[in-house]
Simulated scan of single mutants.
Amino acid sequence: MPLTETQARNAKPTDRAYKLSDSEGLFLLVQPNGAKLWRMKYRFAGKEKLLSFGAYPAVGISAARERRFAAKAQLAQGQDPMRAKGEGEGDEDKSFEAVAKRWHDMHMAR
């Protein structure tokens, strides 16, 4: 049975973190400090992985399910959703030479 908005809203923190399952690997992780985080467990290339979608209530149930659907579509195409998520961030060159030049430029005034 899928998770409902009421169950997610009324989830109370306990001494240990616990999961409220939705479906197809999606779950809401309730932390002892009260934080509620959307996660999806999946397998890629024979390894178990965990994908994060954001915090509840900023990311609602329907948004989390849409993100799960998109991640499942990437898996069906043979792509790792975690790798695809990180590709859009930090397009700058991360080679040692580029990092060293940026560091040198920032500290040149000293």
Rank of each mutant, 00 (worst) to 15 (best):
M1E: 11
P2I: 05
T4R: 03
T4P: 01
E5Q: 10
T6N: 05
Q7R: 08
A8Y: 00
A8W: 02
A11F: 01
K12V: 03
P13R: 05
D15L: 15
R16Q: 09
A17W: 10
A17F: 07
A17T: 10
K19D: 07
K19E: 04
L20D: 05
D22L: 04
E24V: 15
E24C: 15
E24N: 15
G25A: 13
F27V: 05
F27D: 02
V30M: 03
V30I: 06
V30E: 02
Q31C: 11
Q31P: 06
N33E: 00
N33H: 05
N33A: 05
G34Y: 01
G34E: 03
A35L: 01
A35C: 08
K36E: 03
L37H: 01
W38S: 00
W38V: 04
W38G: 00
M40Y: 07
K41W: 08
Y42V: 09
G46R: 12
G46L: 15
K47T: 06
K47H: 10
K47L: 08
E48S: 14
E48G: 14
L51C: 08
S52Q: 04
F53T: 13
F53C: 11
F53K: 11
G54M: 09
G54Y: 06
Y56F: 14
Y56R: 05
Y56T: 10
S62R: 10
A63F: 10
A64D: 04
R65C: 08
E66V: 03
R67L: 12
R67Q: 09
A70N: 07
A70R: 12
A70S: 13
K72T: 09
L75M: 08
A76F: 06
Q77A: 00
G78N: 08
G78C: 04
Q79M: 14
Q79A: 01
D80W: 00
D80L: 00
D80H: 01
D80A: 02
P81E: 12
P81Y: 12
M82L: 15
M82R: 11
M82T: 07
R83Y: 11
R83A: 10
A84K: 06
K85H: 01
K85T: 04
G86E: 07
G88T: 01
E89Q: 13
G90S: 02
D91P: 05
E92I: 14
D93K: 03
K94W: 09
K94N: 09
S95C: 01
S95G: 00
S95W: 00
F96H: 13
F96L: 13
E97H: 07
E97T: 01
V99W: 04
V99T: 11
K101F: 10
H104V: 12
M106D: 13
M106F: 14
H107R: 12
H107D: 03
M108I: 08
M108R: 08
